[in-house]
């Protein structure tokens, strides 16, 4: 008997996978629906993909979202990685520092979004992509920090110490020992931050300016009449792009090991 295998976990996991994928299948399926009404299936068609190609608004919204998420998640992950390295060993005030790093999590997003808008207006910051990247970076920090920190917490510090005893300098030690061990945590953190930014509606809603509407803002403000298969189609396209991106980063991550 293998102690690492727990009864029922496999069955539950497969069930969870079904739960996770049924809506995705529905979402992708309805992007091929000829009917304009998203909830009524008539027959299969590629019309909605054609409509995206003819709709510059929806295209730029998708592009804005990807650029924003990529910039904010990268910045947040780098900042969070540095902070996680600093807090990996106990020091006086560590609890306080960690609490500060996690504040974006305990604040309702609408509050931070409105307050940030007022602050930016007071400071004369132009609304748009720059303002959104700043705000997104801030609230993405804990999403990147927590997984990296959790990974570091139980990581065996003795490897690093051993390497240093063997006269590896600190940077070399970080790059050759700590970073590879930390990589899954960094990837998890980046992924969480990216997804959080990509899906953010409220902050972008308040801080977007001319020409910088993001996809969630576009979708949320178009639901009065109802989501069209056009939105399903662009979501499917985004899904494909994201899957390619993520697969690439996982592949690169494995190369590094």
């Amino acid at each position: 008997m293998n102690i690492r295998r727990f009864p029922l976990t496999r069955e539950i996991s497969l069930l969870v996978l079904v739960y996770l994928y049924v809506p995705v299948v529905v979402l992708v399926g309805y992007s091929f629906n000829a009917n304009r009404t998203a909830t009524v299936w008539s027959h299969a068609s590629l019309d909605w993909y054609g409509r995206i190609l003819a709709n510059p608004t929806i295209q730029s919204a998708a592009k804005n979202s990807l650029v924003l998420a990529l910039c904010a998640a990268t910045a947040a992950t780098v900042i969070a990685l540095l902070a996680a390295l600093a807090t990996s060993r106990a020091f006086p005030g560590r609890g306080g520092v960690e609490a500060v790093l996690n504040t974006p999590l305990i604040l309702p997003e609408i509050v931070v979004a409105v307050a940030t808008l007022m602050l930016f207006v007071a400071l004369g910051v132009q609304l748009g992509l720059g303002a959104m990247i700043l705000a997104h970076t801030a609230f993405c920090i804990p999403f990147a920090y927590l997984p990296i920190r959790a990974r570091l917490e139980g990581m065996n510090q003795s490897f690093g110490e051993a390497a240093q005893d063997l006269y590896a300098n600190r940077f070399r030690c970080f790059r050759r020992v700590t970073l590879p061990l930390l990589w899954p945590g960094i990837m998890a953190g980046f992924t969480l931050a990216f997804v959080t930014s990509l899906d953010d509606f409220l902050t972008s809603f308040f801080l977007s300016g001319p020409g910088t509407t993001t996809l969630p803002v576009y979708i949320f403000s178009s639901i009065k009449a109802g989501i069209t298969p056009e939105i399903n189609a662009i979501s499917t396209v985004m899904l494909v792009i994201s899957v390619l991106l993520v697969s690439l980063s996982f592949f690169l991550g494995r190369l590094r090991r």
């Binding site: 995705v24 899906d199 969630p216 939105i231 994201s242 899957v243």
Partner: peptide
């Protein structure tokens, strides 16, 4: 990868799928 993929789509669109 499999667990994160569904979350690369918008929250509202996913909720819509549940509506269907």
């Amino acid at each position: 990868l499999l667990i994160t993929i569904p979350f690369w789509t918008n929250l509202l669109v996913r909720n819509y799928a549940w509506l269907i």
